[in-house]
């Protein structure tokens, strides 16, 4: 017994070191698996508060770019509106029964207060949380394209799993055909992402547009992602399809949070069908 005490006393620093190191590695491993990093994240009162203070100073210098993006989006939306007027005047005899329409997606605005894009696994922080109706697994986009999916929430802040992350898998499809694939990132260049799981029957050309597939109940179908940059076709299979993003992930200001109001219904139905 005395020898045991002597041993502990002699190696107490090493034992303390090993104990703390195991704790740190536990946090690291937990962080690498999606959905379990509950303790160590920047969606909390202190870090969120400091980041939003720092961001309000930074924001001032980005007003010009932000205005440009808003004007571009306004013009696009106005054009769409005009198109709709034209169509409805042609089809004036069709009476649309509004009670048959139900809103499926709800959009809220939020601001990115901490942006990362240089690491292997990038997470962003936004200034909306549980109190503002943000929940886990909601999609985040801006006017140029997709950004990520909400990972952790606190009462006033949330962290977002960026598409520049090892754990990010987004369902996408080609704009000109109905072939689906998965958008992943190999960690090299933040402007270029990769597509996997695309069937070899799909015909791909450089410059083809990629949009979200709408299979996942997170993003609605048809949000812009990027264009095909280059690809390799070997052994009758597609290897290394590179996509250059429309979005500049290095400067993101205001974003939109997408809430799918029918997600619960869809998930329940899908689970029921699998279990039967």
């Amino acid at each position: 017994m005395q020898q045991l005490f002597y041993f502990i006393k002699k190696f107490r620093y090493s034992l303390l070191f090993i104990l703390l190191e195991i704790l740190a590695l536990y946090f690291t491993i937990q962080h690498h698996s999606y959905h379990t990093s509950r303790f160590i994240n920047s969606a909390n009162f202190v870090t969120g508060g400091i980041y939003s203070k720092a961001n309000s100073i930074n924001e001032f210098f980005l007003l010009k770019d932000e205005n440009k993006l808003l004007i571009e989006e306004n013009i696009r939306l106005k054009n769409q509106l005009n198109k709709q007027n034209f169509n409805s005047s042609n089809n004036y005899f069709i009476v649309s029964d509004t009670s048959k329409y139900f809103q499926q997606y709800e959009y809220t605005s939020a601001k990115v207060i901490n942006n990362n894009f240089t690491k292997r696994n990038n997470l962003l922080t936004i200034n909306k949380g549980n109190n503002q109706g943000v929940d886990r697994d909601l999609g985040i986009i801006n006017s140029a394209g997709i950004i990520g999916v909400v990972k952790n929430i606190s009462s006033n802040f949330s962290t977002v799993l960026s598409i520049l992350n090892e754990n990010s898998r987004i369902n996408i499809r080609l704009k000109n055909s109905n072939h689906y694939g998965t958008l992943v990132w190999n960690g090299k260049d933040y402007k270029t992402l990769q597509i996997t799981d695309i069937p070899r029957q799909a015909i791909i050309n450089i410059g083809d547009s990629i949009i979200t597939g709408g299979k996942s109940a997170i993003f609605p179908e048809g949000i812009n992602v990027g264009v095909i940059k280059d690809f390799k076709f070997e052994n009758n299979q597609y290897n290394e399809i590179n996509v250059s993003l429309f979005n500049d992930m290095s400067s993101i200001g205001y974003v939109q949070v997408i809430k799918n109001l029918k997600k619960k219904e869809q998930k329940e139905l899908e689970e029921k069908s699998i279990n039967e």
Partner: peptide
Amino acid sequence: IFSDSGGINAA
């Protein structure tokens, strides 16, 4: 905690 990196810097 600030940079959302698990326990990397701590280790």
